[in-house]
């Protein structure tokens, strides 16, 4: 069952340099207890997509629809949004240190969140929170509960973030690069925990990352974003076995593999375009190795192939039209 349905979502910002089309018409569905990975490089709009769904983007021009179950989120008032946010949809941010207020203990912040969304008293809230800390394998949870954020490491805080996100047993968790700031060995532990909990709680997850390695470990479905658009949607097995979009293919090849030693690495030429001046037509065409004349003229349509979809002229056959 589809739990979140995004249709033709646009988030534009007006700035000094011009209109920034951070998210430019993306559509996708999130199914129950599924992990959907949004992959892309910096500035592709993946984080803005997340913040838009959370209703946390201010001073922007929006278009399109975000449907959570039967509720149209774009039409909600601030007050109504607050009831959904944190309770039905929670979010985990990239910088664990920045997500906690340094002036309060971790416990106080967890209890506050619990009291806002659950009808319990403070004592019960405390119990729920400590329980949750144990679930995310925080050693000495009772003691840690009364400590301040600066007394903990990034890995520990990120696990507490996960605990907080799960407190209200939400339907959806949006995780924005939750392990990017962590070291590899810590990342592996946190990812393992995240996956375990997701399976227990049956939560649907939008997992935002730039790291295809993490995607391979975790995701059920992958949407690849480039310059404000989704260029490819596929199941994780299909994507890694048979990437369709040239950008996806190039990303997969950009991994530094052992056999490349002593040789130049394959790379994507050029740089990620600035959001104020996206190229015409297919936005990847200036960097694409398979570019055709039409690519610079017209935006490619979304083409369905088996269980995947791709926005690329390579797969376009005129007789289908």
């Amino acid at each position: 069952m589809t739990i979140l349905s995004v249709r033709n979502l646009k988030t534009y910002f007006k700035t000094f340099e011009g209109v920034v089309k951070a998210v430019d018409g993306i559509s996708f569905d999130l199914k129950e207890s599924e992990i959907l990975a949004l992959v892309g490089e910096s500035g592709c709009g993946k984080s803005i997509t997340a913040l838009t769904i959370m209703g946390l983007v201010k001073n922007a021009i929006f278009e399109g629809s975000i449907k959570y179950k039967d509720m149209e989120l774009t039409k909600l008032s601030n007050e109504e949004y607050r009831k959904i946010r944190g309770k039905k949809i929670s979010m985990i941010f990239q910088e664990p240190m920045a997500s906690f207020d340094p002036l309060y203990t971790v416990g106080q912040q967890m209890v506050e969140a619990t009291l806002t969304h659950l009808e319990v008293n403070e004592k019960e809230a405390r119990k729920i929170c400590i329980n949750m800390l144990k679930k995310v394998h925080i050693p000495l949870a009772e003691k840690r509960f009364d400590e301040y954020p600066h007394q903990m490491s990034g890995g520990m805080l990120q696990r507490i973030m996960i605990a907080m996100a799960l407190l209200t047993n939400p339907d959806i968790i949006i995780a924005d690069e939750p392990t990017t700031a962590l070291d590899v060995t810590i990342q592996a532990q946190v990812l393992k925990l995240f996956k375990e909990l997701q399976e227990t709680f049956k939560t649907s997850v939008i997992f935002i990352t730039h790291d295809l390695g993490v995607v391979a470990e975790l995701a059920d479905k992958v949407h690849v974003m480039y310059a404000g658009k989704i260029v490819e949607k596929a199941r994780v097995f299909d994507l890694f076995r048979n990437p369709l979009h040239p950008y996806t293919e190039a990303l997969l090849q950009s991994r530094v593999k052992k056999e490349y030693k002593g040789r130049p690495l394959p790379y994507i030429p050029g740089t990620v375009p600035a959001a104020t001046k996206f190229p015409t037509g297919c936005r990847f065409h200036p960097r694409c190795s398979k570019v055709m004349p039409i690519c610079s003229e017209k935006e490619p349509p979304e083409i369905l192939i088996d269980n995947s979809s791709v926005s690329c002229w390579l797969y376009f056959r005129s007789d289908e039209k």
């Binding site: 532990q189 790291d211 391979a216 470990e217 994780v236 890694f240």
Partner: peptide, 21 residues
């Protein structure tokens, strides 16, 4: 071994035994 596998058919997260920081 902590580096992700880049291969969804051979996931290795569940194999990770290291704990602590």
């Amino acid at each position: 071994s902590s580096a992700p596998s880049w291969d969804p058919e051979n996931r290795k997260l569940h194999k990770i035994t290291l704990t602590g920081e």
